[in-house]
Every structure is written in structure tokens, then in C-alpha cells.
Design a binder for these strands. Sequence first.
DNA 1: TATTGTTATACTCTATAACTATA
DNA 2: TATAGTTATAGAGTATAACAATA
Lengths: 150, 150
Amino acid sequence: MQVDSITALDRAFELAARLGELMQATLTERGLTPARAEVLLVLRLHGRPMLQRELSHSLRCTPRHVTALIDVLESGGWVARGRHPTDRRATLVALTDQGSGAAERMDTERRAAAHSLLGDLPATALAGFVIVVDHLLGQLDAPHLPPAEA
Amino acid sequence: MQVDSITALDRAFELAARLGELMQATLTERGLTPARAEVLLVLRLHGRPMLQRELSHSLRCTPRHVTALIDVLESGGWVARGRHPTDRRATLVALTDQGSGAAERMDTERRAAAHSLLGDLPATALAGFVIVVDHLLGQLDAPHLPPAEA
DNA sequence: TATTGTTATACTCTATAACTATA
DNA sequence: TATAGTTATAGAGTATAACAATA
């Protein structure tokens, strides 16, 4: 198959859109949104309660937005706020059992989905895919950043 | 390189996030947003003025949202509303010179970006990439839709 | 009665700025 | 004075529901 770079980039954008839609639909079913789900995944990855300030760094968003996210997640029973033992300004955010279970399920399902979506492809195709993706990611990290859009 | 399907899917999600960020930054520089830019591109692709109802279908969003998008694009000088010759309920949306120029520039730059980002990769890698992407898109279109998330 | 576009309302993501309590 | 989190406000994407004008 003859493939030019424009075709490849167009496909990358289309895939991006589709994965986003699928992710959103899956999360909506269980009462989460992408931003809120990521809070749970970050907390699970960290393994221990986190300060909102730390969440702000990990999620690369503003402290104000963390407040809003935690407000909703707390009222939904996914996380709980707790006092920091020594710093009375700080708030520790911990996963509840419900939140922990949801995060674990998301991780498990991500692996299952990968196998279901890609398991029947030859290793050479997967390798070519990852080479191109990594190449793209590397170029996007570079300081000169060429423009691109939909 | 040994690549499993989880790695590949994770890379796909990361690429999706990065492309989205880049696109957004590029558009913000020229006073557009992804949703508004897509209106211009759809109008350019169509080649003639479109009813808001048609835009609603092409953009796969509600008529209400089209109203909001066109309101902003019209006040920014990107598009102009006009009367339908026979149906007085309908509104025809046309690109202005400014909007047409912007759409054309976006299209040109998309091609340039593709070459800049991918031009130095071997054709075999690009072919592998497109095979995997098309395979993923095909699976996502299938009716049984396995779940996936970030 | 069906269709086009609009007003009204709402939820989510995300940001900046000003403020409170604490360090 | 610096930091952690909050209240206040705002713009953007997106949706549903009710409604007006017209077909």
C-alpha cells in the first residue's frame, strides 16, 4: 500500500477523534467524565492520598479546577477529603472504595480493550505503528513545533 | 522492537492528546477554536453556501449549537448569513473572503505539517501505521464496541 | 402538521483574579 | 511574605426543551 504523509496525519486526527468519543461514551455510562476519571487514575497510580496542589501538578490544571473536580467527585462518593496531619491549610484527597474500584476497573478494561482492538494484528504492523507515533510525539516535543489542524 | 497491544493503544491515546493540544494552540493564535475552524473547513469543502440545518448534519451537532457557532463566526467576519431565495425560514451561511482565506491557509498548512512531521519516515513505517489506524477505526465502527479509556 | 432557526436553560472543561486561613 | 484552597467570574463546547415563523 502506497501511503503519503498527509494520509497518515489525517488518519491520526480521525483516530484521535474516535478514541475521544469512545472514551467519553464509556465513562458517561458509569457517571464519570474524562477529567474526573483522570483524577481517579492519577490517585490510583500515586498509591496514596494526594494534596490538591499535587493533583494540580499531575493533572496540569489550575488549583481552582482541582477544587471543582474534587467537589463533584466527593459528592459522588468517588473520593474523600481529609485533613493533613501537620499543615492545616492543606487537604488530602483519597480514593474511596468506590473510587478505587472504578479506577482499577478502568485499568483492567483498558488492557482488555487493547487486546480486543489490536490483538489480531501482526507484530510488524504494531511495530510500524509505534515507530510512527513515537516519531510524531518526538517532533511535537521539539521546540520549533510546526503547525497542524483538523 | 517488541510491541504489545496495550503499548500501542496507550501511544494512540497520547498522540491523540498531543495532536489536540497542538491544533488548539495553532488555532488560538489566529482567533479560532477547533469547533469554529471546522465550520470554515466544512464550508470550504462544500464549495457553496450551506443551510444551518446542513451544517448541523455535517458537523454532527445540534441546530442550537450551529446558531451559537455562526453567531460568533459572523460577528468575527469569518462567515455571513444570507436569505434563502425561496424558503424564508432558511438561512444560508457563506464564507467571507477572510473566512475563505483562513480555510485555505489551514488546508495548506495541514499538508506542510504532514511533510514536516512525517516526511523523513520510510514508506513501510507509514504503511504499518495506516494499517493499524484503519484497523482500529474499523473496530470502533463495529456494532459491539469494546470499552476503552485514558 | 412538519421544518428552520431561535430563545431559554443547563452541565462540563478550563482559565484568571481576588480572597481567607495558615505557615 | 508565601502557600493551600476557595469564592467570583468568564468563555467555550455541547445538550434538551419550548417556541416563532414559515412551509
